[in-house]
Design a protein around this nucleic acid. Sequence first.
DNA 1: GTGACAACTGAATGAAGGTTCATTCACTGA
DNA 2: TCAGTGAATGAACCTTCATTCAGTTGTCAC
Lengths: 191, 191
Amino acid sequence: MTKVIPMRERILDATAELLVEHGTQASMSKIASRAEVATGSLYNHFESKDVLIRAVYERLAEQVTALLVEGDDPSATPEQRLDRYIDNYIDFIWNDPSRAILFEYLSNVPLLPARDLIQSFRGSSDYIAEILQDLRASGWLMDAEPFLMGGFIGGAIRNTLKWQRTYDRPLTDADRQQIKTMCLQSLRRME
Amino acid sequence: MTKVIPMRERILDATAELLVEHGTQASMSKIASRAEVATGSLYNHFESKDVLIRAVYERLAEQVTALLVEGDDPSATPEQRLDRYIDNYIDFIWNDPSRAILFEYLSNVPLLPARDLIQSFRGSSDYIAEILQDLRASGWLMDAEPFLMGGFIGGAIRNTLKWQRTYDRPLTDADRQQIKTMCLQSLRRME
DNA sequence: GTGACAACTGAATGAAGGTTCATTCACTGA
DNA sequence: TCAGTGAATGAACCTTCATTCAGTTGTCAC
């Protein structure tokens, strides 16, 4: 039953959907009817459209951070932790296409300055930076800024899967393995 | 002197600027005044706002394709050609930040379906796919879809440089070399 | 039941934005 | 010199939209 979902959540869900369909041009009245709520009610929960959109992004950022860290075992080897991180990243992008599109869109909208956005992901970027730091200490990793490497594999995964999605291609186990291998190789120290 | 730039170009330039600043919410009247042109004149050159924005993207796609292929020598080895492609890609993203932001934004705006967008880049994606095909034949490359690999390094470069830009970090020669190495390693066949 | 309080509703409002079109005017060719 | 042309103009039009608020509904205490 729909009614058990709290109104605030319903509003955020509807906004997320309409942002994917129409971008920030999505009107408040359309958001309201998608959420099966009166337009005025939007303002009981969010001060303005701007605040509402930011809230969507913040909720998304929390979900993403949680997903990327999911199943992590801090006592595992850095290799294993990196491996799981990459798997989680692929799942995050692939399992929910409209979430991935929303993420990509909001990350590039002028309304939300890039500076603020990256700030929302401090959690997950610090997390991967730490793992990479450990790997570097063990000599496994190439000698580069963890910061730079984190951006590299994240962008690589997102864009590869975006193309795959856009062309309605499946993601086979072989494809997934391929992507993982490419990520790992790119970071590896070579003689 | 400003006046020698044809009106159509002035309009496209102004639109590009305002898209970066305000996204598709940029109003036609603001575009007109930025271009030092009457609002009505916009409609002498472009049927609608929608068409205008598409035209901006198309012009951008042409510029990008030209830049990526720039300086290519078809008789060079595939390794050299790939090397140059990566250099060109880095230059394209780094040399003109607002162009890079515009590119990233328009690539993710719901107004322009992803399908159409990738279509606009057929030229450059076929180009890199061809080079990768050659490299694969020579055994240098790993055994993966050129399509997948093209998406991988493109996304990787764009995202790495986006973070770098967002944090006002410079792009040193060492950074550039690092990124190149990561791209090449990710594609390399390993024992 | 009744009163008090909060949450919700959706029509009303005024501002803003995309598009149109009657008019202007620099230029052309006769 | 002058009629003809069509690009350029920008005020006006109409729609859409974010936001407001007076009224309604639901809830809980007593």
